[in-house]
Design a protein around this nucleic acid. Structure first.
Lengths: 233, 233
DNA sequence: AGAATTATTATGTACATACATAAAATCATT
DNA sequence: AATGATTTTATGTATGTACATAATAATTCT
């Protein structure tokens, strides 16, 4: 009668996942409490806690004080997407990264931009347009507005050799932000830069970042047709 | 001289984040070790560990045994996307959900599908096509292949009133999967169902799920033009 | 009976201690 | 100097105890 010692939290987690998966614990079921599981597994309650907490974070368990832990009825799949630098993204695939500044202007933003960044319409902001290349082929167009009130030093940077993407990461921290993925028809300018037909379906990422209460930057990345963003589930 | 007691891990985490944002600890810097921080903060090392571990998970810190903890040079933003049921997604926005089965056939999959699911080309699979509606307007087209070898009970389900999405979640568990986001031009069939122009730019989600070594299902969700997938950063 | 109060209970977390582990640094050996 | 063995060290984690907290259940009061 050798009890299969579940002595570390990873092992406990695996066993918990196995039971959920094997429907020994069915969706909606209340599972035994931490103390009981600890006794069953022959480990400390803290170990069970760590395992259950981790599984709960992945969405497979719902935990509530006093109410106990139950198997999620409708597990919400959580896809975590790593938003890395475009340069890293390209280099990670063993391709040669290229960068090309298209335009750099201090100008008054359109209402949509000033509204999103919550700055007066009359305030001039730094507007960048650039092209990222993979093995010399167009990869993505970057269209960026930088709030110069928040990041004044940006006006001293030419952005001829470094992308806004990279410069901001190193020079302008942000506390939070918002990201949106969508599909769009390539504009005339995008089609020209990406070398694709006008109105081709392109993948778009819009990002808006904040440093506490002030906006930092708003960027729109338009990828060449065929681009996929993929991740494990 | 009242030391600002950082007595719980959330408070410690906030202080760590503050120092990173305020550049007191700059990107690349080695920060003090857990024991020292614990002493400084007046708490146990385990508390500091929990805080630092959490920050590291968010990508702002790099930790390595013996080497210590340093501020990430290029913090990788991690966007977590909750992939919920389409019905829930729509209802969460206060809209009326509608579902319509377009077709349900047992048929031999095209090479691309049988390859992705790793089943012999001659094996017939369940092929579903359905439309999801929000306030009676087309929302997304679901095109799904179900591996009937893995989920034999699926052939007994008509899918007239319940979507493959929902039925599988309740009846066919999966251990892992893959998800991809992209943009595509609407096909003739998609355009007809979504009521949009042919070749309109549409947002697409492709998902493939597995139960250990066997494939469960492959689904392609094509959203009506204008659809955005957004999340906090 | 209904409302307010109190007890109970499962999770959540803090702490001190101990040991495990990985990786860097040092020392010994050739 | 290059190689290999050893020590050191910072993180990683397990444990027992203690108490906090939230939510439910039970009880008391009106």
């Amino acid at each position: 009668m050798n009890r299969p010692a579940f002595r570390n939290w990873q092992t406990v987690q695996e066993e918990v996942l196995r039971r959920i998966h094997a429907r020994e614990w069915k969706p909606g079921d209340l599972i035994p409490n931490e103390a009981d599981l600890a006794e069953e597994f022959g480990c400390a309650r803290a170990t069970v806690n760590r395992a259950l907490r981790t599984v709960a974070e992945s969405g497979l368990l719902d935990r509530r004080r006093k109410a106990g832990t139950r198997v999620a009825l409708q597990p919400v799949a959580k896809a975590t997407i790593d938003i890395s630098l475009i340069r890293q993204e390209i280099e990670a695939r063993g391709q040669k990264y290229g960068y090309q500044l298209i335009s750099r202007r201090l100008q008054e933003p359109p209402a949509q931009v000033s509204g999103a960044l919550q700055v007066p319409m009359t305030t001039r902001m730094l507007h960048l347009s650039a092209l990222h290349l993979a093995n010399d082929a167009p990869y993505a167009v970057e269209d960026r507005w930088i709030n110069t009130a928040t990041v004044p030093t940006a006006v001293n940077e030419g952005f001829e050799t470094i992308s806004g993407n990279e410069w901001l990461l190193a020079n302008a921290p942000y506390t939070h932000g918002e990201i949106a993925f969508s599909a769009a028809a390539a504009t005339k300018e995008e089609a020209r830069l990406l070398g694709c037909p006008l109105h081709a379906a392109v993948f778009v990422i819009d990002r808006l970042t904040w440093d506490h209460a002030v906006s930092v930057t708003k960027v729109r990345l338009t990828f060449a047709p065929g681009h996929q963003l993929r991740t494990a589930l």
